[in-house]
Amino acid sequence: GKMTGIVKWFNADKGFAFITPDDGSKDVFVHFSAIQNDGYKSLDEGQKVSFTIESGAKGPAAGNVTSL
């Protein structure tokens, strides 16, 4: 299901971020390909987002990341 959280930090050079979920679970890795914005895919620290949890090769990662 959809979860919500806050972007903890975003590394534009490497194209990934971490989200701190609102439910208090541990921070979730985000690859820029999961960001659903049109055009430039970036996130801002402190931004509120919704996302799903996908199981990636290196463990859980956020999918369908959308700005709220």
Rank of each mutant, 00 (worst) to 15 (best):
G1C: 15
G1T: 12
G1P: 09
G1W: 10
G1I: 11
G1Y: 12
G1M: 13
K2Y: 11
K2Q: 11
K2E: 07
K2W: 14
K2M: 13
M3Q: 07
M3S: 04
T4W: 09
T4D: 02
T4P: 01
T4C: 13
G5S: 02
G5Q: 00
G5T: 01
G5A: 01
I6A: 03
I6R: 10
V7M: 02
V7N: 00
V7W: 02
K8P: 00
K8E: 01
W9F: 10
W9P: 00
F10D: 00
F10A: 14
F10C: 13
F10N: 01
F10I: 15
F10E: 01
F10H: 03
N11W: 08
N11S: 10
N11K: 04
N11E: 04
N11D: 10
N11A: 07
N11G: 03
A12V: 12
A12P: 12
A12D: 04
D13Y: 09
D13C: 15
D13P: 04
D13T: 12
K14H: 06
K14Y: 09
K14G: 05
K14F: 09
K14W: 10
K14P: 01
G15M: 12
G15I: 03
G15L: 08
G15A: 07
G15V: 02
G15T: 08
G15W: 05
F16C: 15
A17E: 00
A17V: 10
A17S: 01
F18K: 07
F18R: 11
F18H: 05
F18T: 04
F18E: 02
I19L: 03
I19P: 00
I19T: 00
I19R: 00
I19D: 00
T20F: 02
T20N: 02
T20M: 08
T20A: 10
P21C: 04
P21E: 01
P21A: 02
P21K: 01
P21I: 06
D22K: 02
D22F: 05
D22S: 06
D22A: 06
D22N: 04
D22R: 02
D23E: 03
D23F: 03
D23S: 03
D23L: 02
D23N: 07
G24D: 03
G24L: 02
G24F: 03
S25M: 03
S25R: 04
K26R: 10
K26L: 07
K26P: 13
K26D: 09
K26C: 15
D27N: 08
D27A: 10
D27Y: 04
D27Q: 05
V28M: 10
V28G: 00
V28F: 07
V28Y: 05
F29N: 02
F29Q: 05
F29W: 11
F29M: 14
V30S: 00
H31T: 07
H31E: 10
H31F: 13
F32A: 05
F32N: 02
F32K: 04
F32G: 02
F32I: 08
F32P: 01
S33P: 03
S33H: 08
S33E: 07
S33M: 04
A34M: 14
A34F: 14
A34H: 12
I35M: 06
I35S: 03
I35T: 03
Q36P: 05
Q36I: 13
Q36L: 13
Q36N: 11
N37Q: 11
N37V: 12
N37A: 10
N37W: 14
D38E: 09
D38Y: 11
D38S: 12
D38A: 13
D38Q: 11
G39Q: 08
G39F: 09
Y40A: 09
Y40D: 08
K41Q: 10
K41Y: 10
S42R: 12
S42L: 13
S42Y: 13
L43Q: 01
L43T: 02
L43K: 01
L43E: 01
D44W: 15
D44Q: 14
D44H: 14
E45M: 12
E45R: 13
E45S: 11
E45W: 12
E45N: 11
G46Y: 03
G46K: 02
G46C: 07
Q47T: 10
Q47E: 06
Q47G: 04
Q47M: 13
Q47I: 08
K48N: 05
K48G: 03
K48Q: 11
K48I: 08
K48L: 08
K48A: 08
K48E: 05
V49M: 01
V49Q: 00
V49H: 01
V49I: 07
V49D: 00
V49Y: 02
V49T: 01
S50C: 14
S50G: 04
S50P: 01
S50L: 08
S50N: 05
F51R: 00
F51Y: 11
F51W: 11
T52D: 07
T52Y: 08
T52F: 10
I53F: 10
I53N: 04
I53A: 05
E54Y: 08
S55N: 09
S55D: 14
S55A: 12
S55H: 12
S55Y: 10
S55M: 13
S55P: 12
G56E: 13
A57C: 15
A57Q: 10
A57K: 08
A57M: 12
A57L: 13
K58C: 15
G59Y: 10
G59D: 14
G59F: 10
G59P: 13
G59H: 08
P60I: 05
P60R: 05
P60K: 05
A61Y: 14
A61H: 10
A61T: 13
A61N: 11
A62F: 07
A62V: 11
G63Y: 02
G63R: 05
G63D: 12
N64E: 11
V65Q: 07
V65E: 15
V65R: 03
V65Y: 01
T66F: 00
T66E: 15
T66G: 15
S67N: 15
S67R: 03
S67A: 06
L68T: 15
L68W: 01
L68P: 15
L68I: 15
